[in-house]
């Protein structure tokens, strides 16, 4: 009898200390039946990659409000790839200008969620990602 639970890492990279958004997302995903590994503030790319590896998460969610996403995201993707986590998707939430979305997508970010996104949208997006993954396995 298999019991599958979606496992999601929610992390805040970089130096901004605004974690309310990350906490709201974490709680919403918990209420959607997911297991949320919440790592807290000021995570380095290596810390995020390491947590993603050890926890064997299905997806990594980054909350960035500092404007440093164009610097942080590629480093995190790189650290994750080095840890052989090429197949683990990254989604980003926070203050992300529309102009940066295409570039982030090229860096391998599968979803960008700015202000005004409902928690249901994020939940559905993650559920779809996981359904795809399980289909591939």
């Amino acid at each position: 009898m298999a019991i599958r639970a979606a496992r999601v890492l929610i992390a805040k990279p970089g130096l901004d200390g605004h974690d309310r958004g990350a906490k709201i997302i974490a709680r919403a995903l918990r209420d959607a039946g997911m297991e949320v590994i919440y790592t807290g503030l000021r995570q380095t790319p290596q810390m995020i990659a390491e947590a993603a590896l050890q926890e064997d998460v299905d997806v990594v969610g980054l909350s960035i409000l500092s404007g440093a996403h164009m610097t942080l995201v590629p480093r995190i993707r790189e650290a994750m790839n080095e840890a052989e986590l090429d197949d683990v998707p990254i989604i980003v939430g926070g203050i992300i200008p529309d102009d940066d979305k295409a570039a982030l997508s090229e860096m391998g970010v599968v979803g960008v969620f700015g202000p005004g996104t409902s928690t249901e949208m994020i939940r559905d997006f993650i559920n779809k990602l996981i359904a795809q993954k399980d289909g591939d396995d």
Binding site: A5, A26, R27, L29, R30, D31, A32, G33, M34, E35, V36, I37, Y38, T39, G40, T44, Q46, M47, E50, A51, E55
Partner: peptide
């Protein structure tokens, strides 16, 4: 909900790396 928030890692950041 069947979900969970797993937050113990927050207190174990010294062990990272």
């Amino acid at each position: 909900s069947g979900g969970a928030i797993l937050g113990d890692r927050i207190r174990m950041q010294d062990l990272s790396g």
